[in-house]
Structure formats: C-alpha cells, structure tokens
Design a protein around this nucleic acid. Structure first.
Lengths: 133, 133
DNA sequence: GTACCTGCAAAGCTTTTGCAACTGG
DNA sequence: CCAGTTGCAAAAGCTTTGCAGGTAC
C-alpha cells in the first residue's frame, strides 16, 4: 500500500543537507533558502520545502516544532506541562509537577540566561490508541 | 514609554475567556472562534485573535507553542533538547543529556501511550543578555 | 526510459492590520 | 466624552501544490 520511494540525491538536495549540517543553530526554511541560494542561485523556495520534508522522512535531519504549527490557548495561566497526541493533535495537561531542577542542570553548561522551560510529552491518546490495536 | 492600557471587559472578551476556561483541552484560535460564535454569532475572527493577545498579556490565559511558529530544521537527527532566546528567537542545542525518566514518571498518571517528549529551555542568549545590562 | 525532481507561480492557511463605527467606564 | 474595541475585509506571512519541462539512475 505504501508506494516505494526511490529518492535521488540531486544537487539541490545535497547542497541543502550540506548547508544544514554546516551550521550550529537551527535555521528556518527561509534562512536555509538564503544559504543555499549562494551556491544554487536559481533554486526555488518550493524545492527547499520539499527537500526538507524528504530529508526529514529519511531521518537525515530533524524538524523542530513539528505537527501543528498553529498556536493553542490555555485557560489556566499557571505553568504546567502538556501531552500531545501524535495522531489527532489533541493537547491535554500532563499530570505531573514542574521539574524546576531541569533548569538548574542546564544552567551549569550554557551561557544562556535561562528563565524557563517547556516540556511536552508525545503519545497516543486513549481514543487513538484504540485504533492501534 | 509604555502606554498605559485600560482594558475593558467587553462582552466578546468575557465570552472568549469563559469558553476557554470551560474546556479541558487547548483549542486553537479557530476552535475558540467556533465556540464563541455560538453565543455571539457576529463576532469576527480578528476580534478573537486580538482578545487572545490581550488575555495573554493580562495573564488570564496562556499561549502555548509561542513566539516563532515557523518551523526550524536541525542537521542532527538524534533527539536532543533545545534552548531558545526569547529576545531574538535564536535556537541552540541544550548541552544536556536526555532525561528518559521523565516519560516513566508521567506514564504512571496518564492514559496516554507515551512515546516521547520534547524539552525546550527559554532564556536570553549571550548576545541578547548584553543588551539587558 | 521513466519515476522522481525542479523552477515558477498560484493557491492555502493562519494570523495581523487598517478603518470607520461603536461602547464601556 | 474618548480611549479602547469591534466587524469587515484586505494584507501579510509561511507553506503547499499544480504543472510542464528536466534529470538521476
């Protein structure tokens, strides 16, 4: 049922991957577009996007801040963790206390002035888990 | 320099807040729009967005998946944590090992089938911290 | 040769904004 | 009264997609 995909290593794909491996920060698609354009001036933004998807599927790269990019709103203003269903996108509160020591731990090794953290669990909600049986 | 804001509790604002407090999950703006429209049919989406911003500022609600909603890409496919600068949006790897026990901990209290987690620290990068002096 | 890719441009979505009319305090 | 709000519609991002021509293998 899954169509087999024979991915080709085109020049565009290769350069995108190289540029992405080269930098330490995590550029957005537009920044990648700018970097790659220095080497392939006529590449299109669409090509960049399509290749980022393919490279993610191939596990060559990682897409951060995935799935739904739309914002969600929470009626309870206190900080707390969330748990998200990969299948249906549902978002619930995670039944767990805030782990403040995580910030202490990272502070020892970074030069950022850490002011907070966000933790999100990923899984299948009880509804969607049924379908996985 | 900061202009004083005298926020009014309009009917729209009130209903949006009520509806948001009412639900357990975390709806997106479009869902909130749908919920509120049942009570105020002629409310506009723009009003919903503007009020969500105001309510966030007033700390009445919380905006999840904040700041940059644009995706970012990472050349290293292994899972690791990130640290984000609130000021400039820069994203770096957090120098810290994966805390696998976090998942074990939350599994005890949730009916989700947990498959992973994402942790992101928030702070000021060394560049932006300079400006805070 | 042909399935996979590319560039280009148009379309899609979510979110923001300009504006004139309206309203809470 | 009048700064803050609203509805409407247009604009503004970022991302996806249709298409016809190109290319890796």
């Amino acid at each position: 049922m899954l169509k087999k995909q024979n991915h080709r290593m085109t020049r565009q794909r290769k350069v995108i991957l190289e540029e992405l491996k080269k930098v330490k920060t995590h550029p957005g698609a537009d920044e990648i577009y700018a970097m790659v354009r220095k080497r392939i001036p006529r590449i299109s933004l669409g090509t960049v996007y399509r290749n980022l998807v393919v490279l993610s599927e191939l596990k060559e790269i990682q897409t951060i801040e995935h799935v739904g990019t739309l914002k969600r709103f929470d009626g309870t203003p206190e900080n707390h963790y969330h748990i998200r269903c990969v299948k249906c996108g549902r978002l619930d509160d995670a039944p767990m206390e805030i782990e403040t020591y995580l910030e202490k731990k990272v502070r020892r090794y970074t030069d950022y002035a850490v002011v907070g953290h966000r933790l999100e669990f990923i899984g299948h909600c009880s509804e969607c888990a049924k379908g996985c049986l």
